[in-house]
């Protein structure tokens, strides 16, 4: 009897703690969520009343829309490369910036700059860096006798350019890793040093395992973010050249707000939703195997 009431209290406490989110979810999120499922089965032009069309949007998407498949492929390619490289770069940078060096806070600030500077300035500089004639990258390549590609204007390279650009924003995840690194008790390192572990061994056996909860976080967020990639393509390439950077979310935006095909866009959103949930589910399932919590 007593045990049960303790359990009830724990349940109540738990719900009390998550109440802000729960209320927000019920008030602000649940409605739009359910509405978009309904809309995905309608033709809806934003203004007129939605008209039920059954699964017609889904049928059209899966059987009659080559750009849908193209955009899915582009997004998968992007995710497959950008997520792992983002994690590796983020962790490496955080390890580097976690050192006790004079002026380290200046470096930290500099690496975070592309995340702060307005997109108008970053995109201009990025376009310059990748300028086929006079850009930084191709100038360096030319020193080695390599004629660089046309980057953003080449259908085989435009996506790679955007992946490259995503690494530029690594400062954001670097901060999170840095906060995580600072949470690793220093005693662990001291103990390891007494045991005679070298820098690599310490990184391999203490830092990385202790960082896995944060890596896990960035992996999940990176997955959700990568499938939702929109801004870079919207600002820099508008999906071109030849649809090579037509990201899923960009195509979805076009359908929703430019072609006023909100029903179709909602169907796209739910297909994307299922895909992301499958991937996130796999990551969540695997996490007990490699993520270390507590001690």
């Amino acid at each position: 009897m007593k045990k049960r009431s303790a359990k009830t209290i724990r349940n109540l406490t738990g719900y009390a703690f998550i109440a802000p989110w729960l209320i927000g979810f019920l008030v602000f999120t649940a409605g739009p969520f359910i509405a978009s499922i309904f809309l995905s089965f309608t033709r809806y032009d934003i203004i007129s009343t939605p008209v039920w069309v059954g699964a017609a949007n889904y049928k059209e998407l899966l059987t009659g829309d080559p750009i849908f498949w193209k955009s899915l492929l582009v997004t998968f390619k992007y995710a497959a490369v950008a997520i792992p490289s983002g994690i590796i770069a983020g962790v490496a940078l955080a390890l580097l910036l976690n050192m006790e060096l004079k002026g380290i806070s200046v470096y930290r600030t500099i690496f975070f700059i592309p995340s702060i500077v307005p997109v108008v300035a970053t995109s201009v500089v990025f376009v310059w860096i990748l300028n086929p004639n006079s850009g930084l990258v191709n100038s360096i390549l030319l020193r080695f006798g390599i004629m660089g590609p046309n980057w953003l204007q080449d259908k085989n390279w435009a996506l790679w350019s955007l992946i490259f650009m995503s690494l530029w924003g690594v400062g954001g995840s670097m901060i999170i890793y840095l906060a995580g690194l600072k949470d690793i008790p220093i005693q662990l390192y001291e103990a390891a040093m007494i045991d005679g572990a070298n820098a690599w061994q310490r990184a391999r056996h203490i830092t990385i395992p202790m960082l896995t909860p944060i890596i896990f976080f960035n992996l999940v967020m990176g997955t959700i973010g990568a499938f939702g990639t929109f801004t870079q393509a919207f600002v820099m390439t508008q999906g071109g050249p030849e649809d090579s950077t037509m990201f899923y979310s960009l195509y979805l935006f076009n359908r929703a707000w430019r072609y006023l095909d909100m029903g179709y866009a909602s169907a796209m959103a739910w297909i994307l939703f299922v895909i992301i949930m499958i991937f996130t589910g796999i990551i969540m399932k695997s996490h007990r195997k490699w993520v270390h919590y507590g001690n």
Binding site: S123, V127, N131, P132, N150
Partner: peptide, 17 residues
């Protein structure tokens, strides 16, 4: 084709920047 693209995108930084 490639020369045209190279020439035009070479200008991008100025038209965009």
């Amino acid at each position: 084709y490639n020369n045209v693209v190279r020439f035009e995108s070479g200008l991008l930084s100025s038209s965009n920047g």
